[in-house]
Structure formats: structure tokens, C-alpha cells
Amino acid sequence: MNLAGIPPGSRVRVISLYGGRELQRRLMEMGLVPGSLVEVVSNNNRGPVIIRVRGVMIALGRGMASRIIVETL
């Protein structure tokens, strides 16, 4: 499952990240490391996906969100 397909209100855990090395690093440095708990705040299947990770709200483009593989809790 990737983050772009997770409905708002769900809690998930990051399993792995795909995409360029540069992008992976940026995401991980913002706290999205494998194992991190993520709460999906808003996802309306069109605009950015908004998540909370490590106490911080982050807006992610859909392309980026779809490269984050997660499991639901």
C-alpha cells in the first residue's frame, strides 16, 4: 500500500521509500524513516496528502506520497 491511497484519519507505519536518492533523503530527514508512525490528516484524492509525522504536519505531493510504502495499523 502506498501513502497516496490511505484515507484521512488512518494511522500507518512507514515500511520503505522509493524514488530518487535525493528525495528519499529529504523525506527521511523530515522524519519519514522506515518504522515511523504516520497519521493521514487529509487526502482527497486530488491535491497534496497531508500527514502528521513526529508531531509535525507535512503536505506531500501525490507523486511523492505514492512512493512511500506503508502498512495500516
Binding site: M57, I58, A59, L60
Partner: peptide, 12 residues
């Protein structure tokens, strides 16, 4: 070709 991806912290 692709637009830049948004990655933005939303502060309180």
C-alpha cells in the same frame, strides 16, 4: 516534464 513535487511543513 513533471511539475515539482510539493514537500512542505505546515506549522501550527
Amino acid at each position: 516534464k513533471e511539475p515539482p513535487e510539493l514537500l512542505l511543513e505546515i506549522p501550527p
